[in-house]
Amino acid sequence: MSTIILFTIISLSAIGAIAAIILYFAAQKFKVFEDPRIDQVEENLPAANCGGCGYPGCRGFAEALVKSDDISDLYCPVGGNDTMSKVAEILGKAVEAKDPLVAVIRCSGSPEHRKKVNSYDGASTCVIVSGLYSGETACQYGCHGLGDCVEVCDFEAIYMDKETELPVVIDDACTACGACVKACPNDIIELRKKNKKDRKIFVSCVNMDKGGIAKKACDVACIGCKACVKVCAYDAIVVENFLAYIDPVKCKLCRKCVEVCPTNSILEINFPPRKVKPAQPVGEAEAKETPARSTGEKENDNNIINQEG
């Protein structure tokens, strides 16, 4: 009996020893040299593997950072400037600080403002709808409301508001990785400069139809009237294809354009309430729309969307 145990121990130990030797030589022979800095850099990346930098995962980005001499074109939107400066320190390379960005939804076409004229019954993704036809409403540019952007977000920073049937970005969770921008077939989502206190002013519409057609399809569409262009003191607004666009860099958040927009397609978000000017007839008429225009920024307590004329 004891001999059997003895033989077992000896033979198994021998097999183990031989395997260890083989493994050692194999490891030596097939060793791949890797720059240790790649590991170092990767440690400092957010490990979200979201692909927002354009590389497959954080490891891929770390390799690219180590390899390239000039890393000023490379940027991790999730980690932001802090991460990039740490990385630059490790590598001894220079980076420029970039403005942090945040995703904004450029459509306010809730069912109340944008009547549905047909009903879609098919696979529940925006990209299939947009391949098929112009959508359930008369506006072919706006949000299809099936949540492709929500599906791709790795950070749970976007959700569909059931009432407005529009996506809502949670500013604090958004890392500006750009996944939703790519996923949206109608290019509604834009990454815009993040301002102090998450304040935002932007044209919440992408409709490029002529004013009359756009207005007929949606109450809150940009009709390309250029009223905002005239009032803007900083040349920040351009109108192209009957659609206004506010340059986030030039814009000084003065809010004048918001006041003059006849269709309320320019939104101001996270501003303190402004003083109500007495006796403004237009303001009263428009004020009725206020509840519907709160495009779901319910996550932020100090969020006030100003609707006065």
């Binding site: 004229v117 047909n118 009903s119 019954d121 098919g122 696979a123 299939i128 098929l132 036809y133 359930e136």
Partner: peptide, 8 residues
């Protein structure tokens, strides 16, 4: 009622 649209 509203007409339905779906892919073939």
């Amino acid at each position: 009622s509203k007409i339905t649209i779906s892919p073939s």
